[in-house]
Design a protein around this nucleic acid. Structure first.
Length: 111
RNA sequence: GAAAGUAGGACAGGCAAUCGCCCUGAUGUUUCAUCGGGGAGGAAAGUCCGGGCUCCACAGGGCAGGAUGCUGGGUAACACCCAGUGAGGGUGACCUCAAGGAAAGUGCCACAGAAAAGAAAACGCCCCUGACGUUAGUUAGGAGCAAAGCUGAAACGGUGAGGUAAAAGCUUCACCAGCUUCGGGGUGAUCCGAAGGCUUGGCAAACCCCAUCUGGAGCAAGAUCUAAUAGGAGAGAAGUCCUUAGGGACAAUAGUGACCCGCUAUUCUCUCGGGUAGAUCGCAUGAGCGGUAAGGUAACUUAUCGCCUAGAUAGAUGAUUGUCACCCCGAAGUCCUUCGGGGCACAGAACUCGGCUUACGGACUACUUUCGUUU
RNA sequence: GCCCCCAUCGUCUAGAGGCCUAGGACACGGCCCUUUCAAGGCCGCGACGGGGAUUCGAAUUCCCCUGGGGGCA
């Protein structure tokens, strides 16, 4: 995932949190908003409550991987933020993938 | 063979395929491609100590506060490490210890107990005398004692013998502990020996005393660059006249006001300062790592040769599959092979080093101890 | 990443080495009172975050973990 496809600045995050729409799920929150470009940008947010440093990193890697796998199913021109609320430590890659797909279906830009 | 102990380390899975990440070199060319190189740990963790580095403060010194606390050494420094001393634990290899001072002073020691620290006998023991009583004993007075008993976590040296009415370190004895002095070994903590007088409770992770060290904050420290917006300080020019200059006088516009005076403000340029967002530096050649030699019991030091080994900033190493290696369980047998299933930890660099502490599935190497068996 | 602070019944708290078998208020349960409810009275339930050290003795002193909360551009 190139840097141009990611949200990097704190300003961008605040903008999406304040202006964007929300899809709720016990495990995740997904914020999204239309941006000015023709590309999609994604950010991931995992709080310290979720786990230790290496566990948080692992969740972010898995989320990135799932996003890359399924990004063609979403229209261009949006900013997204995945916020992790609570996650089972036993959940593996395919469990998280299922949850993310469920969330994608609730999103407006879903094809 | 089993069970243990100690130390070590470039141990902490390897390889391949597919899809991907960060840094970097070259080429194309521009911010994307292609090819090449590099890319987490022993604890990267907790942030508990000690440094480097940066900024702030500071004449010098002291007090207060904080830290350390057997001795000697190592180190940039330490609360760390090494060697030793003493105490405690273990059959042993070995392990553990905040281990200075309680005759500098103050304070505390609940309950129980006669008594909890400069001294006492109200529980008691023993003897004498009187009274009562046949006796056992009871009671009053006097003298002696602190041994035994009782209490407690702890009782003013301990054990045994002599001694006595009962007793007592009682200038009586033996052994032991402690104190003081002397002699000897050791740099020293301390150890060994002799003599003396007979003896001094515990708590300093209670206040404290003594010795040594100690300014504060932290890389989100701090430095540099500059866009935009708002606003601050200074200088000059904006009109005219006077004056060497400093400056002064008179005007213009707007506000206040009914109007004038008065007061306040006004445009442009330059400089300085402030400083948020962003970028760059800080930022990886260092008390560095490895080999060899010398010194030292060792920690470590010195010399010399070789090597360069992550650098992100919403924060880089992952996912899937196959296979091999290792471990565990089950089954089969040709007794070390096959098949099936499962497992492979704790955990992710954020300025950087030295430690400590905590988490952790296991594998290996070396040395040592105890027990069992065989020869 | 760095720097601080806190932890006692379900909740808010008292406690400063022995009087702690940890006190109080609210809440909860039972009984009394009342025609009933509330208020009131009596009784009960219920806690020192975990481990180690010092001490004769620790909620209290010291060390190490664990879990919360806050600050720094």
């Amino acid at each position: 995932m190139k840097k141009s496809e990611r949200l990097l600045k704190n300003k961008d995050f605040i903008n999406v949190y304040k202006q964007g729409k929300i899809v709720r799920n016990p495990s995740f929150l997904l914020f999204y908003i239309k941006n000015e470009t023709t590309k999609n940008r994604v950010g991931f947010s995992v709080s310290k409550k979720t786990g230790k440093a290496h566990e948080r990193n692992k969740i972010k890697r898995i989320l990135k991987d799932i996003y890359i796998k399924h990004r063609n199913e979403i229209k261009d021109g949006y900013d997204f933020i995945f916020l992790v609320r609570k996650i089972n430590k036993e959940d593996n890659y395919s469990d998280i993938e299922k949850i993310i797909l469920e969330i994608f279906k609730k999103v407006n830009p879903y094809r």
